[in-house]
């Protein structure tokens, strides 16, 4: 290889190294990119909705439990309640009780 060719290769390699280094420095990898404000807002909204959903589930579960307990208590009270007063009337029945 002649000196000329060696010089040409060296110059080409130097130019490539220069541009790669330039691109690397220009990308500023040490700087954290600023988040897209729209994405950030969406993420915040998602977090808020998840928190609200958990709260709603908790409230619904509490209310359902209270409702169930009240219903059971009411039914238990009804079991113990005296039979309603009934009287015999002279009317055609709307329906007839029979062996079920």
């Amino acid at each position: 290889m002649t000196n000329h060719v060696v010089r040409l290769y060296t110059a080409s390699a130097a130019i490539i190294v220069f541009f790669v280094a330039w691109a690397g420095i220009a990308a500023r990898p040490w700087v954290t990119p600023a988040p897209d404000p729209q994405v950030a807002a969406l993420a915040q909204r998602q977090q808020r909705l998840q928190r609200d959903a958990r709260l709603v589930q908790l409230i619904a579960a509490r209310r359902a439990a209270a409702n169930r307990a009240a219903r059971i208590a009411a039914r238990a009270a009804a079991q113990a309640a005296p039979a309603p007063v009934v009287r015999i009337v002279h009317l055609p029945p709307i329906t007839t009780t029979r062996t079920s």
Binding site: I88, V89, P93, T95, T96, T97, R98, S100
Partner: peptide
């Protein structure tokens, strides 16, 4: 509500307000 009860030889009507009636038997 007028509810019929089968007496064996006819039907009797009861007036029922808030309440319930049920029949158990071996005839059905």
């Amino acid at each position: 509500w007028p509810i019929g009860l089968d007496t064996g030889d006819g039907t009797l009507t009861l007036e029922l307000g808030d309440g319930a009636v049920a029949t158990s038997g071996r005839d059905r």
